[in-house]
Simulated scan of single mutants.
Amino acid sequence: MNASELALHEGVVAEAGAARGRESDGLVESPLPSDMLQPWEVWSQDLFDLEMIRVFGRSWVWLGDTEDLVKPGDFITGKIGTQSVLIVKQRDGSVKGFLNNCRHRASGVAFDPAGNCGKAFACPYHAWTYGLDGKLLSIPDKERMYGPDFPMQSYGLVPIRVHIAFDKLVFACLSHKAPSFEEWIAPLLPRYEAYKIGNYHRYHRELDETFPMNWKVFVENSNDDYHVRFVHRRLNKVRKQMDTIVRFEGRTTSGYKPHSESFDFSLGRTDLDEDDLRGSYAEFIYPNLTPLPYASQLIMVRADPIAPDKTRLVSRIYGLTEDIELQERELVNLELTNKEDTDMVTVLMENLRSPFYRVGPSSTWEGRARHMMRQIREDVATPLAPDEFAGPID
């Protein structure tokens, strides 16, 4: 999108929102200001398209883990917003990331969530072939199709930044200018290092389902500590919900919930702070990741935007236990928690379809949600830098 197209795009979004606001004001009076999501922020295709550029274009996104990246040629695929990406284990043991698009006509070069490509990736459309390092190796009938001077070196797979966090979790970023991953999650970093997540292993299955909701509505829900004792009331017996502590800073948030005395999920660990052994956290890493860390396991829930009214949730659990029955109980519990949230969020989505409704003010325990909504709006209002994708990647 060139500068004139982008300016036109922004104008359409701003004018449409202003017009809807003027015309539909007045039916629902809300005397106190609110930072929570309003209807026009949920259903706009133009706003969604801008978020894919300005939010996801400058963010670190969790894609998977190193358990799928053991041998040279092992790969995982995923999405950063609506951009497909590819992470590949190299012959020297390093890991590299690329846009998962052939440079010819936008086909992907890898299609499974994880696998091994052998020695190269071949596009199924016109058979352009790429090495593990992204270099373009061959084009069928190259001289007849393009002549002898085709610049092969300029048409390799487009590289992206990759970070392996805590010897386990794979994150990637499109922007060359965004802060390092360590800076991105700085408020959470010391505690996450203390968990020794590299010792955890992935549970025997994951959850993967698509829901009729806007990604931001799920983000808001994930950062809402107010709803927990009502929507998830079955958990009240194991958590001291009224002692919740809400924190937010930068691109991270944290809601700490002490456990009841009868609930011990430490699996015998004694190497963490007392709070971390005797409680758990509902946290968020901008823009779309909800980590739920305990002393002996880490739940990860990622909200992948597909359309203004469609979001894919991918959930995994990592932990210390190898007991499949225990793993399955935890996965079933997570399925129920996700269902409780998505059932409620789907109700919100339907009612936010009304252009006349205005949401109320956020409570103290919705401070994390308020913080994230402000961050999203700030990014949407700020164009990417002209050199956002220039220069080397780290």
Rank of each mutant, 00 (worst) to 15 (best):
P258M: 05
L235A: 01
R234E: 13
D273L: 11
H201K: 13
E249T: 07
R269Q: 06
R202S: 05
F248Y: 15
N199W: 01
R234M: 10
L235M: 08
V219D: 02
Y256F: 12
R234A: 12
N199D: 15
T244S: 12
D243G: 02
S266L: 03
H201W: 00
T210N: 00
Y256A: 08
E209A: 10
H232V: 01
Y192S: 07
Y256K: 08
S280F: 11
S260H: 10
F211Q: 00
R278H: 14
R202N: 00
Y200S: 02
Y281R: 11
F248H: 15
V246M: 10
F265A: 15
V228D: 04
D264K: 05
T210K: 05
K257Q: 11
N214S: 06
S266A: 14
L272R: 08
V246Y: 07
I197M: 08
F263D: 06
K216V: 00
M242P: 07
M242T: 15
D276Y: 13
L277E: 06
V217K: 07
E274P: 01
E220V: 01
E220S: 01
G255L: 11
H259V: 08
K240N: 15
K257I: 10
V217M: 14
T244I: 15
G255N: 13
L267A: 12
S262D: 09
K196T: 09
A194S: 14
Y192Q: 09
E209Q: 14
L207W: 02
N223Y: 02
D224K: 03
G279W: 03
